[in-house]
């Protein structure tokens, strides 16, 4: 009789211990807020930097183009965790102490910039050549044509791939846990090891869902909203 209940009880006790959950909820909320603003900062600066790089590359000066290609390839090839650890443990050796937060922020911003630069560039190249010709034939300069005619079309085309990539990279804020950033996963694993119970991890998972499901839904809405109708 006792043994029948034990399995179920054990499951509940280790994943859904309400007392443990209550105890660690404030920590998870702290982690949630930190993950939120870290992710928002990364998304904004990563996309802005990626856009700037794509625009610079559109001018096709060989040196800047070459530098951007190297940057984008390296940042896309390297696992972000490797780069975070390099910054966090490597830079103090040259007298530069980066917090775990800063190392994570810098790494993920650069990774998102690298991916979004490539995506924006693909959008620029996919915009029909006739658009350039029409704009230039009215006397608009290269930069004006890019700003008013090409980029608005390129950005629309890139919304779906950009949304997916942005969500993927924002989730990587969880990597910050290995360098002591008090984000959701870090709070959850700390709670788990102090309590010897998995309930804080369940709370952490819930926190991620609460944070990212709206983002995923928003991404889908943006994709339909910006779906390009060509004539």
């Amino acid at each position: 009789m006792n043994a029948d209940i034990t399995q179920w009880d054990r499951f509940l006790a280790s994943f859904f211990d309400l007392a443990v959950m209550q105890k660690y909820l404030p920590d998870i909320v702290d982690g949630f807020l930190l993950t939120c603003h870290l992710a928002i900062l990364i998304v904004i600066s990563g996309l802005v930097l990626g856009l700037i790089l794509a625009v610079i590359r559109a001018y096709e000066f060989w040196l800047t183009s070459w530098l951007i290609v190297v940057f984008a390839d390296v940042m896309r090839a390297l696992p972000p965790l490797v780069f975070i650890l390099l910054l966090y443990f490597g830079l103090p050796g040259v007298g530069l102490n980066l917090s775990g937060y800063a190392a994570t922020y810098v790494t993920l911003t650069l990774v998102l910039a690298a991916f979004s630069e490539e995506i924006f560039r693909a959008g620029i190249l996919a915009t029909p050549k006739g658009q350039w010709e029409a704009a230039r034939s009215t006397g608009l300069g290269f930069g004006q044509s890019l700003a008013y005619v090409i980029m608005p079309q390129a950005i629309r085309m890139t919304v779906p791939p950009l949304t997916n990539r942005t969500i993927a990279i924002a989730k990587n804020t969880a990597l910050g846990t290995v360098v002591g950033v008090g984000e959701i996963l870090n709070q959850a694993t700390t709670g788990q090891s102090f309590s010897g119970n998995a309930s804080p991890l369940v709370l952490g998972a819930l926190a991620y869902l609460i944070l990212f499901i709206p983002v995923v839904v928003f991404g889908r809405w943006v994709e339909t909203r910006f779906a390009w109708r060509r004539t």
């Binding site: 010709e133 029409a134 704009a135 230039r136 009215t138 079309q153 629309r156 060509r230």
Partner: peptide, 17 residues
């Protein structure tokens, strides 16, 4: 110079946005 020379293309090339 191009301000003074208009051009009309086969495929119109209107800005779709």
């Amino acid at each position: 110079v191009r301000q003074k020379i208009g051009m009309v293309f086969q495929s119109f090339n209107l800005y779709p946005h």
